[in-house]
């Protein structure tokens, strides 16, 4: 494991902490897209199907369980918690799941490394993760007065993907036969989706003004 990979995972973990903190501290999930959270949960469920059948390391297994557990906990807070669920921006969070799930499923059926159920579902999770942030970005654009924690949450998610790209570059040069086209291209697409957000996030941070995305 290299430093970029570890930093990427820690930033990803931190993004969950920030999100749970925001929801719990403010008792509100305003500005958070339930659709993105549901898509991420689907991503983790599909990707970690081999959780108990393919042991890689304690680190790997622990992180997978934490990601899955936190994702379901966030879904519970947003859908089941009686105080928090009423703060959900249902009317604004209108992105259609099918526009993301269907193309990713078709692409996974067409482009994958092996024609096995596990491999196709795993590939689907890679494609879906790349675009799962879109409902959240659309909701941010519609949200007036984005709070700091929500902005930081999305920034950390983007930063995690950026660090993974550095990890892949490092691994490509240090490990023999390390070629992962599906993961790389999806990861690059995923990172590109954040570029516009990064621009406004850094601008608001430099000018010390509240984050607002132009609609």
């Amino acid at each position: 494991m290299n430093i970029f990979r570890l930093a990427g995972d820690m930033v990803h973990l931190l993004s969950f902490v920030v999100l749970v903190l925001k929801i719990n501290a403010t008792k509100s999930c305003r500005g958070i897209s339930l659709k993105t959270q549901e898509l991420y949960t689907l991503v983790f469920v599909c990707r970690y199907l081999d959780l108990f059948s393919n042991f890689i390391s304690m680190y790997n297994t622990t992180m997978k369980i934490v990601f899955l557990g936190t994702s379901f906990a966030i879904l519970y807070l947003m859908r089941g918690h009686k105080v928090i669920k009423v703060t959900y921006d249902r009317e604004q969070d209108t992105f259609r799941y099918l526009f993301l799930v269907l193309p990713c499923a078709l692409l996974a059926l067409l482009i994958h490394n092996a024609w096995t159920p596990f491999e196709v579902v795993w590939t689907f999770s890679i494609y879906l993760e790349a675009v799962a942030i879109l409902p959240q970005l659309v909701l941010l654009q519609r949200t007036q007065n984005i709070d700091n924690l929500t902005g930081n949450y999305v920034f950390l998610l983007g930063l995690y993907r950026g660090l993974y790209i550095l990890n892949w570059i490092y691994r490509y040069f240090t490990e023999p036969h390390y070629i992962q086209w599906i993961v790389w291209i999806s990861g690059i697409v995923q990172t590109i989706l954040y570029l516009d957000f990064f621009y406004y996030y850094i601008k608001s941070w430099k000018n010390n003004v509240k984050l607002a995305l132009p609609s």
């Binding site: 990803h12 393919n54 890689i56 490394n113 036969h177």
Partner: peptide
């Protein structure tokens, strides 16, 4: 081997 290594990322 390569096959198991390729799923070591989260």
């Amino acid at each position: 081997d390569d096959e198991s290594n390729d799923k070591d990322e989260l």
